[in-house]
Design a protein around this nucleic acid. Sequence first.
DNA 1: TTGAAAGCGGTACCAT
DNA 2: ATGGTACCGCTTTCAA
Lengths: 333, 333
Amino acid sequence: MKDGEQMATIRDVAKLAGLSVATVSRAINGSGYVSEESRQKIEHAVAELDFRPNEVARSLFQKKSKLVGLLLPDISNPFFPLLAKGVEDFLQKKGYQVILGNVQENPERANDYLHAFHQNNVAGVLSAVDNDYAFYDNVHPLVFLDRVGNDSEYSIHADDVSGGAIAARAILKRKTKQIIVISGPKEIDRSKERLQGVLSVLEESKKDYSLVHSASFLLEDAIITAQTVFKQFPTVDTVIAPSDIHAIALIQEAYRHNIKVPKDLQVIGYDDIPISNLVVPPLTTIHQPAYEMGYKGAEMLYKLMNEQEVKQKKLILPTRLIERDTLRKKETQ
Amino acid sequence: MKDGEQMATIRDVAKLAGLSVATVSRAINGSGYVSEESRQKIEHAVAELDFRPNEVARSLFQKKSKLVGLLLPDISNPFFPLLAKGVEDFLQKKGYQVILGNVQENPERANDYLHAFHQNNVAGVLSAVDNDYAFYDNVHPLVFLDRVGNDSEYSIHADDVSGGAIAARAILKRKTKQIIVISGPKEIDRSKERLQGVLSVLEESKKDYSLVHSASFLLEDAIITAQTVFKQFPTVDTVIAPSDIHAIALIQEAYRHNIKVPKDLQVIGYDDIPISNLVVPPLTTIHQPAYEMGYKGAEMLYKLMNEQEVKQKKLILPTRLIERDTLRKKETQ
DNA sequence: TTGAAAGCGGTACCAT
DNA sequence: ATGGTACCGCTTTCAA
């Protein structure tokens, strides 16, 4: 890049300021002694030359760059861009750059990225890919976002057991004939916990329900699942979905069958992705703080990278019900 | 990262293979002579030590890394993750990593990222942020994706004039009473061209229409715009939207007013983001090949980075009509 | 308070 | 065909 003039180096600054590179380095990093007079000269020279330290050279010496690796399962799932945005907003303020690793739910690719991150001396990694998918041995520091590995020391995710329970309780307040609970991929802790939260409430209240399984959070699987629901359970009138995408796909399938939402079919989603507020009817769902998760996860990683104390190694963020229009009126209060 | 054992260096490999670092380097890079025998030894040593060259050291020497900067206007706009996915899929195969720069439509941030990219010796940059927003002088090689700066030499984007025309022609095949054309932000070439395509067809056919302006492609502005449309034009029965988000927001606003789509209001979107096929009713829209744009843009950049010939400096990708359910039946034909 | 010099992990020139 | 070595730009001892 920048081909015009060669980029100024610390040597150019030193020459212009009439000092040694060592002094310039100290001045720039605020390490060691530098006289006020020298500081002035250096400041001017830096401005004059528009000098910016070469991060690569720094990284080579420090064995640590200002780069952070971010592993995402699937960037086309709207939940993850939100996460990524939170991550970037925090790290950008701290002068870190993020290297994107979009794994496409592909274990091999996760490991390739982890190696690439390492070869680039990343200062840390943030991962939303659980460790069935990748070998994290020796990746350090490491903070898991959303999807959490069993043995992960640092992590941040939503309170999905509680989120699932909230969804189920919202359903119990309505009249229901046949409840279908869609379960997400069982390898993913997040969806297991959601399901667990839902089922515990349903069972405690002795409500009948049937399960339909969805293979993944991919759009295609959400569509297939929606079709399955109506095929297997033509009389379904209530669905608890494991994601907003699932819920939206279901609403569309209902529309194709000329089933009215929420009159004939009520649906509750999960995630509260931005679009869920724009669909017809606006989706009632469980809000998961994706942006905040990314932001706080980055903050945790930052502390780890800079040897600051992390008071809470496992952060669990609250979920909450967003009441919109896909559930029927409450029966009881 | 990897704290356990120190990462193996090329010197370790040389020692284990009983050869010099120069020979090992040649073997690894396939540059210069290496005897078959030496090659074998080196191969074993590399495997034994699980050696992977430190990209930072390489980058320092070469003044060029295996990193590519990707500037995006807004990662939470579903169009851009698709682009990013295409970019990553291509570059990952070629051994490049992408540094994410999410600009949030903020000029200052664009420049910060450009500097950061530079300080990290990126081999090139891909930008979907037009140059009113950033100073690209000396950023090289540079390929613009989607949003194209005036003086950009290399670029790839959709044929939006034609896309706009296709949308307008689809509308002309239907009966209309009052057509509203929503214009996107005028600073963005893409939306200018869409509008131009729409208007040229409408004017040629002497159709009346009214314009409503939308400040940006942000969700919030799409909602505001939808409200404006109904407030200013209560009798609107046809809308040409500048993005799917705008169209979806409009459909929801119609729903709130109890206006039926497409019976009382027909809408055509633009982009064909994944969710457009999941909403109710499924959105008729103009498909823009976002993934392909990212993929091919990355390919173009790759050629530039590796001094390969680029036959076409400005690639314009075709758009096409995706007929779904938000337009009424054709009148003629 | 300052500076000379070693070294981070590679690459490539130049001998041999 | 191989290896010694300077060097990429910066940081950090260590001596002055």
